[in-house]
Amino acid sequence: MEMSANQELILETNELTKKLGGKPVVKAVNMQIRRGDIYGFLGPNGAGKTTTIRMLLGLAKPTAGSIRIFGKDIRKMRLAILRKVGSLVEYPSYYGHLTATENLEAVRRLLGVPKSRIDEVLSIVRLTKEAKRPVRGFSLGMKQRLGIATALLGDPELLVLDEPTNGLDPAGIQEIRELIKSLPQTSGVTILISSHLLSEVEQMATRVGIISKGELIYEDSIHRLREQAQGRVRLGVSNPESAWRLLLSHGYPVGWENGRLTVAKADDRTVASIVARLVKQDFEVYRVEEETASLESIFLQMTGTEGSL
């Protein structure tokens, strides 16, 4: 864990548990989000993402465990915390008969922020032109953007977006993605974004947490996850067994399977020096090939949903 003083924890759960009708749907989750993170909260549908997020926002009460946001306990300081949190849970909520501006105004009156903020958030999500239309007639993508605008209204320090791209077409997904990526730079906000697709958040997330069957089974930087996904190199050589012994005796981390040599997590330098060593000792090197596992397949392996369809 690379934890330094300037990476202040914004959100932290401790053994967070929720039972619904006696069944645990969230089990002892310990989650940590630091200031400036874009935290991808991943898991298949029904893994407990939305339930966790509901608890983070104080919409549902944990059966056990605790939540601290901005260093404060959600049970005791709910209002103080929510004042600095913007959220979009599941699908966007809106009042269909009102226009986009009126929808934002209904929330603005509760937040007590200046009126000018409405135009600002409308322009951030590029809805300025549609502001005077009833939301009923909006496309799903526009409703989703209005939902994000609502979440941004209070100028939050933490933005919680639950499946913000759910049900959108590829163009809509791209649009929301660009929008979210641009946020931390423009407003310095920390973002928690959930999704059931790794590919959807991998391009914007800095850290990921993976939840499966209610348990947080992985939490680290996206960088580390990529490392895991990095493949190994296989070498086809003449007389592989003696080549393997030779390389081991020189301290290279090589394996031997199916008549091929394998090198896990090999950087370019290691591969080059292995090849040089083999050639020097008169082994014939037939092929050097990379075997890669995609991030998605690692994710699927972790969550045990591979082939579940």
Binding site: R54, L79, S93
Partner: peptide, 15 residues
């Protein structure tokens, strides 16, 4: 109820 908007209002800083 119609628009499932309770979660919107109750995730705001109001009691």
């Amino acid at each position: 109820h119609q628009m499932n908007a309770w979660k919107l209002t109750l995730a705001l800083p109001v009691r």
